[in-house]
Amino acid sequence: MKQSWVDELNAAGAPKCTEVQKGVACFCLEPENLLPSVRKILDLEYYLQDVSAADFQEGYLLTYHFAHFEEPGQAVFRVLISHEEPQIPSISSLYQGAIWHEQECNDFYGIVFTDHPDLKPLLLVPEENLYPLRKDTQSQKSFLDIFPGCKLVEAPPAPEGEESSGDQETAGEETPKKKGTGKAKARKGDDETAQEPGQA
């Protein structure tokens, strides 16, 4: 991914990504910033590869993979949403291909995509809510543990202040890790889990 594009995405609300490895750029977003960032990446002519979710201690991690027709590499958006309120805006108004991917996430995890045109079961039986990929508390792992590059930040609601505080913290604390997930933030509404970053 070109550096100018990374900058443009940062300006659109996707926090900085310090490292671009093998053309893969990773952004950790707040749910509020998802739609503006996705709009931006659509303007940059990226296509949607997939939308997937994973169950972690801190909440559900949604991963959006985008790739470009000419440029090599990928753009990865990560959004963390809480277990108690698994809600996220749907990107299907911009990328219609996401309609099925989001229905699938709803099937597997029960994540609600607001403004989705038709959030009915896609692959599983419509009569039951099975949510087969949800993990019980014992088998849940910490998101920070697996993605050490990402950080949990007590996010202040204003986007500008949030970005600057993120910069300071990275400059001070972040140690270089082998996985280049980049410096990024993940929102956490939940206090107890936010205080336990015992990753480093």
Binding site: L42, Y46, Y47, L48, F69, Y95, Q96, G97
Partner: peptide, 19 residues
């Protein structure tokens, strides 16, 4: 349309994109 739906492979190349 191919971009919005994430179409790839020969279907995309049939739309004139050398991807």
């Amino acid at each position: 349309m191919a971009r919005r739906y994430g179409v790839t492979g020969p279907n995309l190349r049939g739309s004139g994109v050398e991807h």
